[in-house]
Amino acid sequence: MRVAVLPGTPDAAPAVALLDAYAAKHRARLMLVAAHGEHAARQLEEGRIDALVGHFAKASPWMTDISLSKAVGRREPDDSRQPVLRIARRNGENALILATDRAIAAMAQ
């Protein structure tokens, strides 16, 4: 499973651990890929990576092109423009989207 962590995401560990657990459950191995900025979002859109970990606002301009998770490890900020740690998934990858949504909700509880 190819995952990119955006530069400047010092708190990425819980999101990466969550994806690592998902990969392990499906007998896959997590592979970190170097990607940055808009290149990373484009790679996710094109399916060259499976998930992207970084800080995104709820009202991100990318929200229609990729599927952003809820905030990881913290509650959703009141300001929809405040970037927080999220996992971006490729649109249409609904099994991964639902599984990570469930894991993030479980983590919040």
Binding site: S67, S69, R89, R90, N91, G92, E93, N94, I97, L98, D101, R102, A105, A106, Q109
Partner: peptide
């Protein structure tokens, strides 16, 4: 376009 349909948490349970 591949539509994304994720989960929603209701009463402590995350359902599709």
């Amino acid at each position: 376009e591949h539509p994304s349909v994720g989960g929603i948490t209701l009463f402590g349970h995350t359902i599709w």
